[in-house]
Design a protein around this nucleic acid. Structure first.
Lengths: 175, 175, 175, 175
DNA sequence: CCTTAATCGAGACGGTACGTCTCGTCTTGTG
DNA sequence: CACAAGACGAGACGTACCGTCTCGATTAAGG
C-alpha cells in the first residue's frame, strides 16, 4: 500500500459541502478557492491537491448533488417525456451553476472535458435510451436538437419550465 | 450643442481596432484592458469611460467586424440554406470570440443583454426572414432549433462546417 | 494693452473662495483641482492658466485670508510678545493648511519658493521689527529660534497656545 | 508555535534594501510601491502585508540605515557638541528622505506617529542625555530649541553644516 | 519503537489584472 | 483671447485571487 498518511475522506466531504453551500449562497463567480477552504476548515493546498481549480471542484460538488437525485425508475424503460421533464427540473434548479460551469469551461480545456464527461454526455445518454425504437440516425438527430434547445435556454437564461418541455416535445414529434 | 470637448472618434476606432487585433492574436482571456489601452495609445480611463468592461468592448469590436461582412444579397429574399451557410461561416471564423463572449455574459447581466441585442437576436431575425412562408408557430420553432444547434456546437467546441449545415437543414426539413 | 479678452477678476475671486472653502471643509489633501473648478463654476484650464498647481492656489487663497486679518497696530512699534501672540493665533487657526503647504513644498521647488516669499519671510520680518533694539547678530538668532519653535510645533501637530507663547518668550528672554 | 508559513526574513530585507536604493537613486517622490516590489523581486501584496504604505516602508528602510550608523561612543557621556555634530551629519546625508517623510507625515496620521517614535523622539533623547547636568526645565527648553532649529533647517532646505552647528551651540550657550 | 512518507491547516509568497483616481493638457463652442 | 465643459494620455493606487511554497503537526505503514 502507499506509504504516508492516507487521504482524509472527511476533509474531502467537507470541501465539497462547503463548495456547494457557498455557490448556492453567493453564486459561482463570488466564491473563491480561499473561501471554500476557510468554510471547510481546510488549507488551500488541500483543495489544489485534489482538484485543479474552482471549476472542477464545483463540478464535483454538484455532480454528487445531482447523482443523489432520485433515479428510482422502475425496470421499465422511461418515456422520453418523463425523462425530459426530470432533466429540465434538475437543470432548472441548478441552472446558475450549470451556466457558470459551461461558461468557465470555455476558458479551460480541462474543465471542458470534465464537464462533457460528467454532465453533458450522461444526460445525452439518458435521452438516447428513451429513443431505442427510432432509427439510429434519427436518434442522434433528436438528441442533438433536444440538448441544443436545453443548453441554449440555459445560456440565454430562459426558463426550462413545463411550457418549454411541451415545446420541445412538439419539435421532436415532428421529426 | 453639448459643451466640452467632443468624443474623439479616432480614439474610439483605435481602441476597437486594438481590441480586435489583440483578441485575434492572443485570444480573449489573454487580453487585458490595459493591453488594449496600450496598443491603442489610449489611457485606461478612456476605455472605461465608454465601455463598462472587456466584454462590452470586445463585443463592440466584433460587432463592427461582423457588420462589415458582405451583406450584399440581391433584392430577392435569401434562401434558408444560403443564410445558414453564411451564418455558420461567420460563426466559425469568430468562434473563439463568440464562445468567450457568451461565457463572460453568464457572469455579467449587462453584457448578457448587450450580447442578445447585438448578436443573438439579429442573427435570429435573419433566419426568421427566410421563413416567411412557414406558419408563424413553426417559424419560431425552426429558429429556436437552429439557433440552439449552432450555439451548442459553439459551446461544445465542435466544428460548424458544411457537414453540420447539411445536418441542420435535414432537421429543419423534417419539421 | 494685451489683446484678447481680459482676465475675469470675478472668476479669480470665485476660484480662491472655492479653494478656501473646500480646504476648510475637507482638508487640503482631500481637495483636488477638479473639485475647486467645479465648486467655483470654472473650468480646470482656468485654474491651471493662473496657478501652477494646488499648492500655489491654496497658498494664494490663504494669503488673502491672512492679509484680511486685522493688522490694526497703532503707529507705535508692537511688542514682541503681542506680535508673537498674534502670530500664534493665526498659525493656530490655519495650522492644517500651513502644515499641508509646508509639506507639499517639500516635493515642489516652486511652491517652496512661493511659500518662503509669501508666508515664512513676512512673518520673520514682523518678528524682526520688534527686535530693533537688539544687536543685529542677536536679532537673527532670536528670529531663527522663534520661527524654528513655531514650525516645529506645527509639523509635530502640537498646540500653539498661550502656554507655548510663554515658553517661547522665556527662551528669548534668556538669550 | 504560530501556524502557517513564517514570514520570510530575506524578503523583508530585500524589500527594505530595494526601498533604500530606489529612494537614494530617484528620490522619495519618484518611487512607487510597485517599483520597490519589482526591484525586490516581491509581490506588491507582500509590501502591503507588512507596511501600510510607502511612508512607513521608507521610514523602516532608513531607520535600519540610521541604526547601523556608528553608535560607538565610549562609556563616557558624549558632549553636546559632538552629539550635535553627529546628528547634523546624519540629518544632512539623509536630508531629502527626512524632508519627504516629515512632509508625508503631515497627510498621514499613522506615519506621523511612527516618525515621532522612530526618528524624532530618539534623537531628542540623545540630546537630552548630554544635558543631564542642566536643570530639568532648562533641559526641555534646550532640546526643543535645538530640535526646532534642525527641523526648520531641513524643511527650509538650508544646509546643516558646521556653520549651523556653531550657530546652534552659540544659542544654547546663552540659554 | 521509530523511521518514512504523505496528508493536513495555516498563511506567506510572486504575480498579475482589476477598476478608480488625480494630474495636467487638449479640443470643442461661446462670449 | 478668456472661459466652461469635459475628453484625453499617463500612470500610481490599493485590492483581489490565483496557484505555489513552507512551516509544524498528524497519521498510517514498514522496518
Amino acid at each position: 500500500m502507499r506509504a504516508g498518511r492516507p487521504r482524509d475522506e472527511g476533509v474531502r466531504r467537507a470541501i465539497l459541502v462547503a463548495a456547494q453551500e457557498l455557490v448556492l449562497e453567493r453564486g459561482y463567480a463570488a466564491v473563491t478557492m480561499g473561501d471554500v477552504a476557510k468554510r471547510a476548515g481546510a488549507g488551500k493546498q488541500t483543495l489544489y491537491r485534489w482538484w485543479p481549480g474552482k471549476g472542477a471542484l464545483v463540478l464535483d460538488a454538484f455532480s454528487e448533488w445531482v447523482s443523489q437525485a432520485p433515479r428510482l425508475r422502475g425496470p421499465r424503460r422511461p418515456s422520453l417525456s418523463s425523462t425530459l421533464v426530470e432533466l429540465c427540473r434538475g437543470a432548472s434548479e441548478a441552472a446558475p451553476v450549470l451556466r457558470a460551469l459551461m461558461a468557465e469551461a470555455q476558458f479551460d480545456e480541462d474543465l471542458h472535458r470534465r464537464l462533457l464527461a460528467q454532465l453533458v454526455r450522461p444526460r445525452g445518454d439518458e435521452l438516447r435510451a428513451c429513443l431505442v425504437d427510432r432509427r439510429p440516425a434519427d436518434r442522434e438527430l433528436v438528441v442533438n436538437v433536444l440538448s441544443g434547445l436545453v443548453w441554449q435556454r440555459l445560456m440565454l437564461n430562459e426558463p426550462l419550465d413545463a411550457r418549454f418541455v411541451r415545446f420541445a416535445l412538439r419539435v421532436v414529434e415532428r421529426i
